[in-house]
Structure formats: structure tokens, C-alpha cells
Amino acid sequence: MSLTVVKNATCTFCGCVCDDIELHANAEKIVATKRACSLGESWFKNHTAERLYPEALIDGQEATVDAAVEVAADYLVNANMPLVYGMSNVTCEAQREAVSLAELVGGIIDSHTSL
């Protein structure tokens, strides 16, 4: 099976965000990395495109994303002081959405920086 080569890929494992990595990938996983450090290599190789987990869980039971989104929205709307936390391993685009959501539900938004 032929490999896709991605040049100048960006590694988001640590705060260095090296953007000169070369990745060799098949449809499911990354098989080789160039220029990545040991941490970056394991980061890229440990994450695959396989379906290893259920798409969503509600109270530990498998559910659809649609149902989970509705339940999540109910919890956040009904809370008096919801917290949106984390955001270090997501994209800036997702962070913007998170800020917008926090404002809408009148909550607190915080990242790993505060730790």
C-alpha cells in the first residue's frame, strides 16, 4: 500500500510546536517520522485513524454524537456556574468556539496556564 508523505507537518506534543516534521502515513496510521524528537515520534505514532473508541458515551453507555451534544447542552444551560477548562490540545479555532460557548452560558473559561 502506498504511503502519503506530509512535509513540514506540525507537531503539537509540546510547546515547541516544531513545524518541520516529515510524516509517512497509510490510511490508518503514521508509520514513519523524520526530524521529530522521541516525544514527537511517539505522539504521531500513538494516534491512529482507527475507530478504537465509541463515538460518544452518556453515563458510560454508548451513544450518538447528536444525543451527547444535546445532553451536554442541557447540562451547561442548566448550570449556574459552568466551567470550560483545558484547551491546550485543541486548535485555536476550537478555542474560539469554546470562548463563545462560555460567554453564551455565562461561565468561566480557563486553560492549563492557571495550573
Binding site: 447540562y75 448550570a79 459552568p82 466551567l83 470550560v84 477548562y85 469554546a98 461561565g107 492557571s114 495550573l115
Partner: peptide
């Protein structure tokens, strides 16, 4: 800040992403 909020028990819901 999150740890202080959670230790005090101030929040009544939490959305965690990328953490």
C-alpha cells in the same frame, strides 16, 4: 482558576476539552 474553583466546589457543570 480551575483548581481553586473545583477544590472549593464552586462549579455546577464542567466542559473539559483537550485536557
Amino acid at each position: 482558576s480551575t483548581v481553586d474553583l473545583l477544590v472549593r466546589g464552586d462549579n455546577d457543570a464542567c466542559l473539559v476539552l483537550g485536557a
